[in-house]
Amino acid sequence: MMAMPDAIYGGHSGVTSSDKPLEYRDPNQSVKILGFWLFLATDMLLFGCLFATYLVVRTHTDGGPTARSIFDIPGFTLETFFLLTSSFTGGLSTLAMRNGNKKALVSWFAVTIALGLAFIGLEVHEFIGDVASGATWERSAFLSAFFTLVGTHGSHVTVGLVWMFLTLLQVAKRGITPITARKVFVVNLYWHFLDVVWVFIFTVVYLSGRVM
């Protein structure tokens, strides 16, 4: 690297300051974090529209399976527990990153990925069970909306798993640098965001489905 060039494409000087968390110190990286926050805001709207659709057609079961009849309490309770815990372990990987502890970072990533896989496994199992009992998404508007909303979350989680694994490889290879630190932070932002979405899924879909 050359000595102190101007910051990337922008006007601010590339001076890094040490009073900020590691991932924010390099302005080239912190602008990417802002960009990712903005992405999360749009993704939130995406889920908002799916929730809106679900809420509108929630009762449109066309004489087919209802929310009460297909939602399995132990199943979604366990899914919730796995995902909440994975959000915590993801947080611990951010902590390890900030402490410069590469080994802990890689381990917490591995734990988070394992918990995410368990969550996805349970969800796939739940979906397969539903489909086997005739509750397919072609059956009714309610089931279309249910599978699409929960499935969109599930596919987000799957993307997150692949992404986290790629980030893990990069950290293992390159160590904790301003760039990998930003990557770790961002993938965790995504992961926590998916946890929030899940909270609303178990509230609006599963719990409300059981009581209404």
């Binding site: 057609v57 998404w137 599978f147």
Partner: peptide, 13 residues
């Protein structure tokens, strides 16, 4: 994929 969000049949809106 044959879902029923906006169809007339099967509760679509």
């Amino acid at each position: 994929f044959g879902t029923h969000f906006f169809t007339i049949l099967h509760g679509g809106n």
